[in-house]
């Protein structure tokens, strides 16, 4: 891995800067990111749709919001592998993505479904996820860490910034909810004005949460925050491993050796 030719400029960033950088990444590489997202999300979205059709209205509410939340790390695994490749100037081939996701599927399921699902039941304990287990996916998929090593390595990456990462996570939840509601109501309004010639729209009910627009908005937000989490992981490594200073020292050293700057 060389961090001299990377997709994003190597420097330490604030939380809001990371989120805005994620937008630029999405804009620079829309197609590979879209394809890997759709390939990962589609099976889970279809499963949720099938479950929602069979369920009661209250089940629709919980299922439409919490199932995608629980499934998101698995559904966005392909996206994470794609980002890992793009970050260092390569575009991973399909078979490599499939193989990496398959090899890591069982440890991912253990951490992201069993452990995370258990922690989700007790909201206070769920804060362990952003404080210790935030980068488990990146470690399993990109660093090819084993079962135990992945948890420990993720903990190391989060160490010293646990509180900060919890606040970042809360910020992402805030922005995520804002975006999903804006997308849901906004596209509803556009739909009413452009296609129904209707300047008012119905008040949404719980069953609308399983509808296409809400689910699309939710999955867009989850995929976007996967990109943001990947960039946060890179930012943590820049801080902990000193990539920015390393690059600066190399650049000044090279300039001095070439006797251009002194």
């Amino acid at each position: 891995m060389s961090y001299e030719r990377t997709l994003v400029r190597i420097r330490e960033r604030s939380f809001l800067d990371v989120l805005e950088l994620a937008l630029l990444v999405v804009r620079r590489r829309p197609l590979p990111l879209l394809v890997s997202t759709v390939a990962g999300v589609l099976p889970f979205a279809a499963l949720n749709y099938w479950l929602a059709r069979a369920g009661h209205e209250s089940a629709v509410f919980w299922g439409s919001i919490f199932l995608p939340w629980l499934e998101a790390p698995l559904a966005t695994a392909a996206l994470t592998v794609m980002l890992g490749g793009l970050m260092f100037g390569e575009r991973p081939r399909t078979w490599r993505i499939v193989r990496t996701v398959t090899v890591s599927a069982i440890p991912m399921a253990f951490y992201q479904v069993a452990v995370r699902g258990l922690l989700m039941i007790i909201p206070l304990l769920y804060l362990v996820v952003p404080a210790r287990l935030l980068f488990v996916n990146e470690v399993l998929l990109l660093e090819r860490g084993g079962w135990l090593k992945a948890g420990r390595r993720s903990g190391t990456l989060c160490s010293g910034s646990g509180v900060e990462l919890i606040l970042h996570w809360l910020g992402q939840v805030f922005f995520g909810i804002w975006f999903v509601l804006a997308f849901w109501f906004g596209t509803g309004a556009v739909n009413s004005v452009l296609f129904s010639s209707d300047l008012t729209w119905d008040r949404p009910g719980w069953s609308d949460l399983a509808g296409f627009r809400f689910q699309l908005g939710l999955w867009i937000a989850l995929a976007f925050f996967t990109v943001a989490r990947f960039l946060t992981y890179i930012d943590q490594r820049i801080r902990l491993e000193g990539w920015e200073i390393d690059l600066r020292l190399r650049s000044v050293g090279k300039a001095m050796e070439e006797a251009r700057a002194w």
């Binding site: 801080r239 000193g242 200073i245 600066r248 000044v252 002194w262």
Partner: peptide
């Protein structure tokens, strides 16, 4: 450029291990 590189290095060197410091400092 050199002043900034030295200043950033000295400001952050407590965060890194001895071996990592040697690795980072060597090119300059």
């Amino acid at each position: 450029e050199l002043a900034r590189a030295l200043s950033d290095y000295v400001r952050c060197r407590r965060r890194f291990s001895r071996s990592r410091l040697e690795q980072m400092a060597e090119p300059l």
